[in-house]
Design a binder for these strands. Structure first.
Length: 294
DNA sequence: CGCGAGACCTGATAGC
DNA sequence: TGCTATCAGGTCTCGC
């Protein structure tokens, strides 16, 4: 089922692509802007993203409390409230957080708004509602942290770890890299970027990769994510950061969505295929199933 | 338990 | 011009 398709002339998706670099950028901005502030009121415009939590419970646990700090685990943004609750925000695919002034016009597709003690409002907006906004107790945060795989930009994510995980799995390498329980924070953009960098075809079976390739893949994941964090993430289509500004990594993408454009290494046209059920950007010359040494 | 397909959701767009 | 089918994709659920 992984046969190449005709290169797509479609426009880039209107997706937000909130992967690790974009969520980390959001975390840093939020930490600077809202840590130490008090939430004076919470308004809930839509309940779809609450994950079954009632609006009353959410409001009860957020109103009047201080935001102590903002952290991140994988693609999850965690606003640590006083004394011990945590407001979890997952942006799904199209979710956005904005920091607005009272005079700003209402945002379309608002789900939850947190008015701070300085008058500004953190707004969680998502036209599709794939994301999540929910208050967690300490034990639930611990469970989330434990469930997810290692943070790829921390020392615990080693080449040995990745080798061990991939060696005993028969799934496609792309499917495993997208699995948050194996490594937390990768999504479609950075998986494709890392696989291209390491010259690995996304439909390779994980257990067919040798140590050299896994080593290259590990290094590529770390490099690609680190570079994008420095550039404040990738803007794709209408993605904006907390201040409505685009990220800086878009023009540095090596393969993602460059369909028909020349490979930066060998100049062969970049192709679109489907692997692990996801649109995937590959160089058909550098990334092959048959000749992994290419 | 591992794997992979399908569901969820809505806006943009291609094609008729 | 207007309608419809298709696609995008993070994560969860379910069947094998």
């Amino acid at each position: 089922m992984d046969r190449p398709h005709v290169p797509s002339a479609r426009s880039p998706p209107k997706s937000i692509m909130a992967e690790l670099p974009e969520v980390e950028t959001m975390r840093r901005d939020l930490e600077r802007e809202v840590a130490g502030r008090r939430i004076v009121s919470t308004r809930i415009a839509q309940t779809r993203m609450l994950g079954g939590q009632s609006p009353e419970e959410l409001t009860r646990r957020t109103d009047g409390v201080i935001i102590r700090a903002v952290s991140r685990r994988g693609k999850f943004l965690l606003l640590h409230l006083a004394p011990s609750d945590t407001l979890l925000v997952h942006r799904g695919m199209t979710g956005n957080l904005f920091l607005r002034d009272p005079s700003d016009v209402e945002d379309a597709h608002l789900h939850v708004g947190l008015t701070l003690d300085d008058g500004r409002e953190v707004r969680v907006c998502d036209h599709r509602g794939f994301g999540e906004v929910r208050v967690l107790a300490e034990a639930e945060v611990d469970a989330l942290r434990a469930r997810l795989g290692p943070e790829p930009l921390r020392p615990e994510f080693t080449a040995d770890y990745l080798t061990g995980q991939l060696a005993r799995r028969t799934a496609l390498v792309k499917a495993l890299l997208l699995n948050q329980n194996l490594v937390a924070g990768l999504g479609n953009i950075y998986v494709d970027e890392a696989l291209w960098t390491a010259r690995i075809h996304p439909a390779r079976r994980a257990n067919t990769l040798g140590p050299i390739h896994v080593g290259a893949l590990h290094a590529a994941i770390v490099d690609v994510l680190s570079e994008s964090v420095v550039r404040r993430g990738t803007t794709f289509s209408d993605y904006k950061d907390l201040y409505g500004r685009p990220g800086g990594h878009s023009s540095f993408l090596r393969v993602f969505h460059r369909y028909g454009e020349p490979c930066l290494r060998c100049h062969a046209p970049i192709q679109r295929i489907v692997a692990a059920g996801r649109g995937s950007s590959i160089c058909p010359v550098c990334q092959t199933l048959a000749a992994p040494e290419c």
